[in-house]
Each structure stands twice: as C-alpha cells, then as structure tokens.
Nucleic acid binder design. Structure first.
Length: 434
RNA sequence: CGGGGUGUAGCUCAGUAUGGUUAGAGUACCUGGUUUGGGACCAGGGGGCCGAAGGUUCGAGUCCUUUCACCCCGACCA
C-alpha cells in the first residue's frame, strides 16, 4: 500500500476520553474511532489487525477439528425465554422489536441458539462429539462501557460450543481447547497465563480463563513463579471484600505483595494484573436439559448432551496486544498482528534517487507477498518517523541522507535501533528479518 | 442503576460568574514561498445553527425549563 493512497488518519493530539495506552494509540494511529458509548468503527489499519487475529483463531480451531458456522445476530426472544436467560441476563440483552411488534435480542452469547441448531440434527451418540464455533458480532448493553475496545458494548467474539455423549469426553475436549488456545495466544506473540476461574452466571463447573498480562488489566490473578499454575483471585479468596481489596490495588502495589499460600509445586505465588481474553467452561447439561436437547445413547435411551463452551474476545485482543506491547511513542505490533510488516520511508521525496530506490524496493517486496507500506508522502523526516512509530510497523526502511554513501537504515520498532545496510543488501536483510 | 462532570471549528480547549459590535486560540486543513534526519518556518485563506427544543429579554454561547449525548467514580460485568 502506498501511504499517499491509504486512509490512515493519525493525530498528534491525545483524545480526551482515552485513559489507557491501547485506547489512545489505537485512536491516534487511525485504527479505530468511536461511534457512540462502547461502539467503535474499525478503520483500515484496525480492520487489518482484526482480520489477522480472526484468521489465526480460525486456523488453529479448524486444525483442532472445530466447525465454523455463523448464527444470526438478531435472535427471537422466545429462545431466551426457554432457558430463562431473558430474565437473568436482564438489561445487558438489548431488546428490539420488528414491524410486527415481535421481540428480538441482539445476541450477547449463543448457547441457546447453538443448542437449538444441534438439537434434532445430531441425534445419536455415534455422531458425537461435535464442536461448532463462530466469530461474530456480540452486543452486551453494559452499564458502563469503557477502555475503548477493551470493554465495548458491541464487540467481535469467537464463541465455540462442543457437544458430547459423556462427561469424560467433554473434559477431553475442554483440555484440547485449552491447548488450542495456548497455540493461538502464542502465535499472537502474547505473554499470557491460563488460570482457574469462577464459572459465573453462565453456569457449569470447571472453568479457566486466559489472561494477557498487562499492568492495566482489570482482573487480579496469582501465578506460580515456576510452574504454569495460575488462578483468578476470585477463586482463591472466599471473602468478596478481600477480592475487592486486592482488585483495588495498583499493579505496582500488587507486585510487592506476597501470598502466604504456596503453589502445590512448592514455589511461591505472585500477583499479576491480567486482561481476560479467553474463557473456557465445562458446561455440563445445564442448557441441553433446559432446552431438551437429547441424543440416543448405546441403549437407545435419550440423554441430554454434555456441553462445553469456549470464548475468545477477538476485538479485545487487538487492544490487548497494544496494552502489552507499546512505548511512549506508540504501538509495537507483534509479528503476526502487525498491519504491515515493513514500512519503506523516503526521507526526502524531492530526492529522485531516494524515491527510485524506494519504488524499487517496494515493488520487489510486494512481489514476495510481503505486507509492505510505502511512505511516499511529501512530509519531513521527523513527521514520518513519528507516524511510523505511532502506527508501530515492526520494521521501517529509512531511505535518507545515508544513501549518498550507498546505505539505508533499518529501524526496528521494538528495540528502536537503527542499523545501516548497503542498498544492495537491504532486500535480503529484510527477507531474513521477517 | 446511584453520584459527579462535560457538550463552542476535524481535534484539544478558552469565553458563560456580571447577557451587549462580526465568537476566539492552538493544532489540523487549503494557497504561495523558504526548508528537508525527529511531528519545521513565514505570509495569506477556508472552516461554527456555541448538542437539541422551548422560554425570559430590545438583545442569549452566557439566564430559565425540558431533552439528548458523551465522560469519570461506584454498583454491575460468560
């Protein structure tokens, strides 16, 4: 993409309502903009990142044997009456009426719809297990949306549901999903922990959350210093006041605290702040019983499906990557999430030699299917550098004053180091880096 | 849902106490010139139903009423 043709409205000004780095940088970098309370538009850069994350989630789930579907976003309220959640979910469910005054709900989650989809279509234990998922818009009319796309009302979520003939098989799938989630978050380049969690209002027994570690996280978790054990503090302290007391502490305060309890492996446990980006549940038969979704077992007897449910906050992940990877100048995208891997920056657009080399390199990288941005705007060096840092391209090739000596520089966004490379070597050097 | 706050140029904000020419600044944008390695400089220019509706007044960004939106703290949050 040529920067002169790209719609990337960056700003120097910090939006007044944004407190978190991810919110500020995503808005300033022209990734997203606010449409209303908890409602955001994804502009070209934001859309690219969102799709990249969606693609990784899809690839890993498909590899694990899951089937992608897409359920209608608007659902009849009768679906929610059957499970009782039209009452229990309260105002979080946005209700609307059509022209016939029939009541509908904008899907906040899809257990009911997914059970209805499988019910009477999967009828035998021989057809089990089956795991269905979708990556689709959700709407939850939160009392107070905040933190940009970290807690929006409308958001993109992957929600998966598995159906089984036995609890054992459901637990097997639960563990498979846990491993699949680890692959996904590893590919995204995130520092994360799988932690024991409360099952909350959705019901069910075993439940684990995946948290991206970040100072600004809303949740407090404890993690083992050596093994991979971790837990949301909601599961550690029985007293709610105690949980609240810890939640109120800042990241700095928390890291100084020590937990009296030791991990079962013998090491000590320490506090961290996390952003919940995934949650997996062993649901059991709560919904399938309520909705009378049965299959025939080996003896021909009807039994409700054992069910598991698995969520990933896809749009929340966009912000989470930045909460974990940024500096005072802007975003630092990870390899798999960067909207463009390489940015070619021509320092002085009036210098023909610079432009020629830039064009040449741009076309050559495009030919190799490298995701490359060519900053061909008539702007000064400092302006373009600040812009590149704000957006967070992993690598920027600076074609500038060193060209006279046959050199260009490669700027590494993460280390912020500039390395001089001979013009003849820049293509191969870039190909090795990415 | 309780408590607090803010709506004025694309953005960040003055101006409102005490009503009074043509509503301001910075930034962004346009034109011309100079500049060209860290968000440049000079000159000129465009851009506003002062959130909306109603009211008081000779006169309302400013006062009154209603309403909408957004933000913050809390409660809530698979």
């Amino acid at each position: 993409m040529r920067r002169s043709r790209a719609f990337i409205p960056t700003t120097k000004e910090v939006p007044s309502d944004a407190t978190l780095p991810s919110h500020q940088f995503l808005v300033r970098g022209g990734f997203i903009n606010q449409q209303g309370a908890g409602l955001y538009n994804f502009m070209p850069l934001g859309k690219i990142v969102l799709e990249k994350i969606r693609k990784i989630v899809k690839e890993e789930l498909d590899k694990a044997g899951c089937n992608e579907v897409q359920l209608s976003f608007v659902t009849p309220i009768s679906l929610w009456d059957k499970s009782g959640r039209s009452d229990t979910m309260g105002k979080e469910m946005l209700r609307i009426q059509d022209r016939h005054q029939n009541d509908f709900v904008l899907s906040p989650t899809n257990e009911e719809a997914m059970v209805e989809l499988v019910k009477n279509r999967v009828t035998s234990y021989k057809d089990l297990p089956v795991n269905l998922y979708q990556i689709n818009t959700k709407f939850r009319d939160e009392a107070r949306p905040r933190y940009g796309i970290l807690r929006g009302r409308e958001f993109l979520m992957k929600d998966g549901y598995s159906f089984h003939s036995s609890k054992e098989d459901m637990i097997r799938e639960f563990n498979l999903m846990q491993e699949t989630y680890k692959k996904i978050f590893t590919r995204l380049g995130l520092d994360f922990r799988v932690v024991d969690a409360d099952s909350g209002a959705i019901g069910g027994t075993g439940s684990k959350e995946i948290h991206v570690l970040a100072n600004s996280g809303e949740d407090t978790i404890v993690v083992c210093d050596t093994c991979d054990y971790g837990a949301n503090i909601e599961t550690i302290f029985e007293d709610e006041a105690q949980v609240d007391a810890y939640n109120e502490k800042s990241y700095e305060e928390l890291t100084k605290l020590e937990l009296e309890q030791k991990c079962s492996c013998g090491s000590s446990l320490s506090f961290k702040k996390g952003i919940e980006v995934g949650h997996i549940f062993q649901l059991g038969t709560t919904y399938t019983s309520a909705l009378e979704a049965n299959f025939s077992d080996e003896n021909g007897k009807p039994k409700p499906f054992e069910m598991g449910t698995y969520g990933i906050g896809v749009s929340r992940l966009v912000a989470s990557v930045i909460e974990q990877n940024h500096d005072e100048n802007g975003c630092i995208w990870t390899k798999e999430t960067a909207p463009y891997t390489v940015n070619i920056m021509v320092s002085n657009i009036k210098d023909e030699a610079q432009v020629t080399l830039g064009e040449e390199l741009y076309l050559k990288l495009l030919g190799e299917n490298v995701e490359v941005m060519f900053d061909d705007r008539k702007e000064r060096f400092g302006f373009k550098m600040k812009d590149a840092e704000l957006i967070g391209f992993p690598y920027t090739v600076i074609i500038g004053k060193e060209l006279a000596n046959g050199l260009v520089q490669i700027y590494d966004r993460k280390t912020t180091e500039k390395t001089s490379v001979k013009t003849g070597d820049v293509f191969s050097t870039i190909m090795e880096l990415i």
